[in-house]
Amino acid sequence: MSTGTTTAGRTGSGGRFGRVTVRPEFTLAVLAVAGFVALAVATDGNLLTRGTLDAFFRFLAVPIVIGLAQMVVLAIGQMNLSVGTLTGLCAMVAAWLMLEAGLPAPLAVLAALGVGLAAGLVNGLLVVITRINGFVVTLATMTIIEGLRYGVNGPDTFQGYSQGLRDLGTASVLGLPVVFVFALAVAALVALFFGRTVAGRQLLATGGSPFAARLSGVSNDRSIVIAHGLSGLLAGVAAVITVAASGSVNSSIGDDLMLPSFAAPIIGGVALTGGVVSVAGTCLAAFLVRLVDVMQAQFDINPRWIDLIVGAVVLGAVLLGTVRQKLSKGSP
């Protein structure tokens, strides 16, 4: 997997400063490994059995991608409240195209991605044209998309679509679920985008300091549209994974994704003010949340404790980040 691309990035370039250890990604990685080992031991190795492990990673794919979808808009200091419902809409559209319109699976997948991208671009354009706060714009589009999502098939469930796609959703490669590998590949691409492409760097410049970016000839409007478009596209990706992995979709898909989409990047060290992203941090945070999830299933804990724990973790992560920031400011 690609390394994190904080804009503060390349902190340890050449390893000269040995600062790798103070980066939030490092803490998260240690926590993730420790948690995984601890859970494996506590379940007497049950976690490492083929079925459990497979399920663990398969249902990690969507949280990773949806976290990234939120992260790309956080990068410019905005939010996208519509990621969850958009994932649902894209999934419903894909299923509808296969079942009702009889389109082959690859075309349906492309269409789902297209819907996501288009909706994201609309978000971005609305923000740029109306100059209304991104939070409010996506609040409105979230509501609209909610209606559209329901409109595709009413309260009914789509199932029995493309066998090939569903097989792909349950298939494994090198012992890992295909959808998980796919999610990692997407994460790598996002990391590449922010780390190495001109558009990605300009987007981070917009997030870091819009005025300075403008002075350097960066079009902030363009960055906003690209960020929202990419966010929508990633929601489309999450939808494709959902359609493949779950075998059936209905209009409630995505309802439980909006808040977790914020949890992963925030725990992963992404600042709400923009300018800083961390692909690795977001992925690791999603991993940690999934770990808590599995722990609940293994020990038959009331699932509601999960939310309580995630809430505490989000707050803890942010507080830790603030403390770290204060410390690093105190010792220049």
């Binding site: 990035g9 760097r201 410049a205 870091g208 300091s209 005025f211 300075a212």
Partner: peptide, 10 residues
């Protein structure tokens, strides 16, 4: 007017 997180070169 520098982007705080970016390197000097960038």
């Amino acid at each position: 007017n520098l982007i705080p997180g970016f390197s000097i070169a960038e």
